[in-house]
């Protein structure tokens, strides 16, 4: 079976400086793949390239075998590519529920006029999506916070809302950009069990982290980048004992 996402020799230069340089990787469905590397390695650039926020200098990105190298961000989102942001980007004044609801956009089928006039089709759709959103909120243990302002909640809660919004898209591929940064171990553990269950549903997950310990327990395959280049890959045990990886992380 083809992997959900494939990067073939992908490069991105900023004014001649390569942020990502000849990177190839694949993210299969039903698994959690890790992309790790020290700060400034180009991890977030990779996410922005895959989601169409940035465009490639060279190489190809394939989504289920289709070339999406030139696709714009909204097209990719509609094709089922979801992401979370490293620096949390929520609607701070909207409620938790409304933040999650915004993730359902790609599944909304009701037209502008039905929305404007409040026709029954729009009412039914929103009622239905609210139910689904509440189920998500419940799965993340935040039912009693559903009506609260997202901006007033703790860091850990806000990260969870980001993940909920991405899951609301019912994506085929999720890019998680440091989803547990700033969380304590218990919070991170509850989130990783959710990631495992999402993978079990057949979704492809790409986890971007620099927290080695968290990645080790969760990922089936790891890619290590440093200065925009792939320096190692393989199963977590093998990668963590690779001297090149140790050197990149600890310096020489």
């Amino acid at each position: 079976m083809r992997p959900t996402l494939e990067l073939e020799n992908v490069s991105r230069h900023f004014g001649g400086v390569p942020a990502v340089d000849g990177l190839s990787l694949s993210v299969p469905a039903g698994q959690i793949t890790g992309l790790i590397g020290p700060n400034g390695a180009g991890k977030t650039t990779v996410v922005n390239l895959i989601t169409g926020l940035l465009h490639l200098t060279s190489g190809r990105v394939l989504l289920d075998g289709n070339d999406v190298s030139r696709a714009e961000a909204p097209e990719l989102a509609r094709a089922g590519v979801a992401r979370t942001f490293q620096n949390i980007r929520l609607l701070p004044d909207a409620s938790v529920l409304d933040n999650v609801l915004s993730g359902f956009h790609r599944h909304e089928r009701v037209g502008l006029w039905a929305n404007l006039l409040g026709l029954p089709s729009a009412r039914i759709e929103t009622a239905h999506l609210k139910e689904e959103a509440m189920q998500l909120v419940e799965r993340f243990g935040m039912t009693n916070l559903a009506k609260h302002r997202a901006g007033g909640l703790s860091y850990g809660h806000q990260r969870r809302i980001e993940v909920m919004r991405a899951l609301a898209m019912k994506p085929r591929l999720i890019l998680l950009d440091e989803p547990v940064a700033g969380m304590n171990d218990a919070e991170a553990e509850s989130l990783s069990s959710i990631f495992r269950s999402v993978a079990a549903e057949g979704v492809a997950l790409l986890l971007i982290e620099h927290n080695m310990r968290f990645v080790m327990s969760l990922c089936s395959h790891l890619y290590v980048v440093a200065a925009g280049r792939l320096i190692a890959q393989g199963d977590p045990q093998k990668v963590s004992s690779d001297p090149i990886v140790v050197q990149a992380y600890l310096g020489s």
């Binding site: 989601t51 714009e72 097209e75 989102a77 980007r89 609607l91 004044d93 915004s102 898209m169």
Partner: peptide, 10 residues
């Protein structure tokens, strides 16, 4: 609020 989020949601 955030155009980058908007395009990322499709």
């Amino acid at each position: 609020e955030d155009e980058m989020v908007a395009v990322s949601l499709g």
